[in-house]
């Protein structure tokens, strides 16, 4: 599984990038990249200050 980003909400702040324990996320300036290796821990979903992330298929 993995997470998906609502780019309409994302503020490109990087809170999720620094939090992800598997280094799956990368902020390419205004684009949040979700790479392989997500373990569904949902920490990025929780840390997002505006609720822009959710588990794929949720």
């Amino acid at each position: 599984m993995s997470v998906e980003v609502d780019m309409d909400k994302c503020m490109h702040c990087g809170a999720c990038v620094g939090t992800c324990p598997e280094n799956v996320l990368f902020l390419n300036d205004l684009l949040l990249e979700v790479n392989k290796g997500c373990i569904d821990c949902e920490l990025c979903v929780k840390v997002c200050p505006v609720g822009a992330l959710k588990l794929r298929g949720d």
Binding site: A15, G18, T19, C20, F26, K46, C48
Partner: peptide, 23 residues
């Protein structure tokens, strides 16, 4: 910055505990 990847790519340290992260 907070989102640092360089330290992780370089193998310097571990990831953070949720109790040590402020959102």
């Amino acid at each position: 910055g907070f989102e640092s990847q360089v330290g992780r790519w370089g193998g310097v340290y571990d990831t953070l505990k949720p109790s040590d992260i402020m959102t």
